[in-house]
Computed example of a mutant assay.
Amino acid sequence: MDTRAPEKTQITDAERIDRLRLIRADNVGPRTFRSLVRHCGSARAALEWLPEFARRGGASKPQRIPSEADARAELETSAKLGVRLIAPGEDGYPPRLAELDDAPPLLGVRGAIENLMRPMIAIVGSRNASAAGLKFAQVLARDLSDAGFVVASGLARGIDQAAHRASIEGGTVAVLAGGHDRIYPPEHVDLLNTLLASGAAISEMPLGYVARAHDFPRRNRLVSGASLGVVVVEAAMRSGSLITARLANEQGREVFAVPGSPLDPRAAGTNGLIKQGATLITEAADVIQAVEPIMGRPIELREDDAEPLAPDPDEAAREHIVNLLGPSPILLDDLIRLSGASAAVVRTVLLELELAGRLERHGGGLISLI
């Protein structure tokens, strides 16, 4: 299979340390990381500017920024567990994941990481799956694996674990919501250890991090982002699998759904996806036929085209923008229009507020003041 992967890059040890310190600093996520690096010129320069940005945003206490020694210790501890922290474009970083605007600046990978460079299909679904759903997930995963695809999923109970188990021999990728040493659910530690022999595991979280409820949607964007498409086997109307499907759609990935009985609430979400335009599938051939044209296109890492920031907004503009914000989420475009300020000024004020721990970002470009 020719995925026409982009040329590999390699960052220096010093850059890896700087990146790790920046992404582990308080209130810095992948999008904020990207904005800071673009504005400041490098991760090292961004580290120097962090306290000033947070102060301007009204931080109530000094921002925690890991020291160089802290970063080196994390790299060394990770290496002892067989985990490498790699940047977009480096060997082992899933090429399609690197395309995303919110791609992790460093991704923890372990196992047979060469499989992370192969074309992936994600299979997700209900934790409380039916026997028929589990059987279909197994057949689909095995057939896709036999066809040369890597099966990706979230190591959860139900459909996820069935897909992993059926594709172990061909290589499967587990996307973790917590750190590599904090596996959830705990009963799947043995499954993870088994799949690592021919597959891989990835996580953007630090060692020791225990996943919480809000971390699973964050994990789901990696499941869909690393893949050509996402297959939802079973999902109730409020299932986390529907979040994965929504993220896949936003990322430009293919969304597939397996139809089910209208009488089974576990099929309500998948049937709903089909009504909304997801591709109905009943076998692996349906998925393969849909993704083959995509695989022929070259994978190009995104250019750093993040919106520019303003050098230092004046106090009046900053106060006006903050006053327009509140606990009710508002669209960024609406905030720019209502403020009368330039997009660069608004984005800078929002970055300051975020680094101060005063801003919350929601799905769909919505923001609110904490």
Rank of each mutant, 00 (worst) to 15 (best):
L20M: 12
L20P: 08
R21E: 08
R21P: 09
R21I: 07
L22T: 01
L22K: 00
L22N: 00
R24H: 08
R24E: 08
R24Q: 13
R24M: 11
A25V: 03
A25R: 05
D26V: 01
D26H: 09
D26R: 05
D26Q: 11
D26M: 02
D26W: 04
V28A: 10
G29D: 12
G29M: 02
G29A: 14
G29Q: 01
G29R: 07
P30D: 14
P30V: 02
R31K: 13
R31Q: 14
T32D: 02
T32W: 06
T32F: 05
F33L: 10
F33G: 04
S35M: 13
S35Q: 15
S35A: 13
S35P: 00
S35H: 11
L36V: 07
L36G: 03
L36Y: 04
L36D: 05
V37S: 02
V37F: 03
V37G: 06
V37Y: 00
V37Q: 02
R38I: 13
R38P: 01
R38T: 13
H39L: 05
C40R: 12
C40E: 15
C40F: 15
C40W: 11
C40V: 09
G41D: 14
G41T: 10
S42Y: 04
S42V: 13
S42F: 07
A43S: 13
A43V: 06
A43N: 06
R44G: 12
R44F: 03
R44M: 08
A45N: 12
A45C: 05
A45R: 10
A46L: 09
A46C: 07
A46H: 03
L47A: 02
L47M: 04
L47R: 01
E48W: 05
E48H: 15
E48S: 15
E48N: 13
W49R: 14
W49L: 09
W49S: 13
L50H: 06
L50G: 08
L50K: 05
P51T: 06
P51Q: 08
E52T: 09
F53Y: 14
F53Q: 11
F53P: 01
F53C: 09
A54D: 01
A54Y: 01
A54C: 04
A54M: 03
A54W: 02
R55A: 12
R55G: 01
R55L: 09
R55W: 07
R56F: 00
R56L: 03
G57P: 04
G58C: 06
G58K: 06
G58N: 09
G58Q: 09
G58P: 08
